[in-house]
């Protein structure tokens, strides 16, 4: 462990609190601090619109970063992200079904169900003799995602008027977030805490699976639990905000450089950094664009970063 890690985590906690406060204050309708006491309208915007939205963004960012960290260690591949085993395409299909057939009712539930069903389908395709080889799991994820996106394209092709709504949802964002959505997003913390309990196992799993077995890790059971928890956390994130790319890929990476590879520190650091990133990304898009989907912004910054990572790994 690096001795600086606890200090960095403490700093990140402060930065997150400040960021959330700032994000609540920011917005297209400028609200003067003084008007809060006098204007019911201002109070409503702050309490009913901005605050739940900021909290939801923080929770989703936190969940994506934690699930991404777990996936990267589990797959021993720093290019892995939380969507890698079909979670996002399943969620997207579920949400689209809700939009097309039920005019958006039950979108959250269907998105979550879609994400979980897709993940477990991938899991059972890849499973052989009680074991899930990592390579097969990745390839099954790619294969299923392709199939699901074909179905999605078909739905969009037949969607007619609701196409715009589907597109918006697919790009990911935090419109119309209410306190209800925050309640839906809260279990992310439970899932994240569950993943954190496996921090030491993941440190060892990051070496290789055989070695981990020799050190007393029940590898297959750890994989099952971690996949289930990651899918749960990611599924909620997708259900609340659509598939927001690159947070789950980049945050673990950057934090690994800063606090080191020990997952006991990496998880909290990545969780906080993911939350900070998404709070700011959302605050900026809703303040300076007319509420452009935040997924566009994260992709704009995330993709070049991904290419940079790829290039520097090719050099090494």
């Amino acid at each position: 462990m690096r001795r600086t890690a606890p200090i960095i985590i403490a700093t990140l906690i402060c930065v997150l609190l400040i960021s959330m406060a700032a994000a609540v204050a920011l917005g297209p309708s400028g609200i003067a601090f003084g008007s809060l006491l006098t204007s019911d309208n201002a109070w409503m915007i702050l309490w009913e619109i901005r605050l739940p939205r900021v909290i939801a963004a923080a929770l989703v960012g936190c969940g994506l970063a934690v699930a991404g960290t777990a996936m990267q260690a589990l797959f021993r591949n720093p290019m892995a992200d939380p969507y890698i085993i079909g979670t996002s395409s399943g969620g997207a299909l579920g949400a689209t079904l809700a939009i097309v057939f039920f005019a958006g009712t039950g979108r959250t539930v269907l998105a979550f169900a879609g994400a979980m069903i897709a993940t477990f389908t991938v899991y059972f395709i890849a499973r052989r003799g009680g074991k899930i080889p990592v390579e097969t799991l990745l390839l099954s994820g790619v294969a299923l995602a392709t199939l699901l996106s074909a179905l999605l394209s078909f739905l969009m092709y037949t969607a007619g008027k609701s196409l715009h709504q589907i597109m918006f949802w697919l790009m990911g964002g935090f419109w119309n977030i209410s306190w209800n959505d925050v309640v839906v997003a809260l279990p992310i913390l439970i899932g994240g805490a569950g993943i954190y309990l496996f921090a030491r196992d993941l440190n060892i799993l990051a070496l290789n699976e055989e070695d981990a077995t020799h050190l007393g890790v029940n590898v297959e059971r750890a994989k099952q639990i971690l996949l289930a928890l990651s899918a749960f956390v990611t599924g909620i994130a997708v259900a609340v905000a659509g598939s927001i790319g690159f947070i789950g890929l980049i945050t673990p990476h950057v934090m690994r450089l800063i606090v080191g590879p020990d997952h006991r520190f990496l998880f909290p650091a990545a969780a906080l950094a993911g939350a900070i990133l998404l709070v700011w990304a959302d605050a900026l898009t809703r303040t300076f664009t007319s509420d452009m989907p935040v997924g566009i912004l994260t992709a704009c910054f995330g993709a070049p970063f991904f290419i940079y990572l790829l290039r520097s790994r090719m050099k090494a």
Partner: peptide, 9 residues
């Protein structure tokens, strides 16, 4: 060893 662990780790 893919990640940058210390010997003590």
């Amino acid at each position: 060893i893919g990640f940058d662990y210390s010997v003590r780790d």
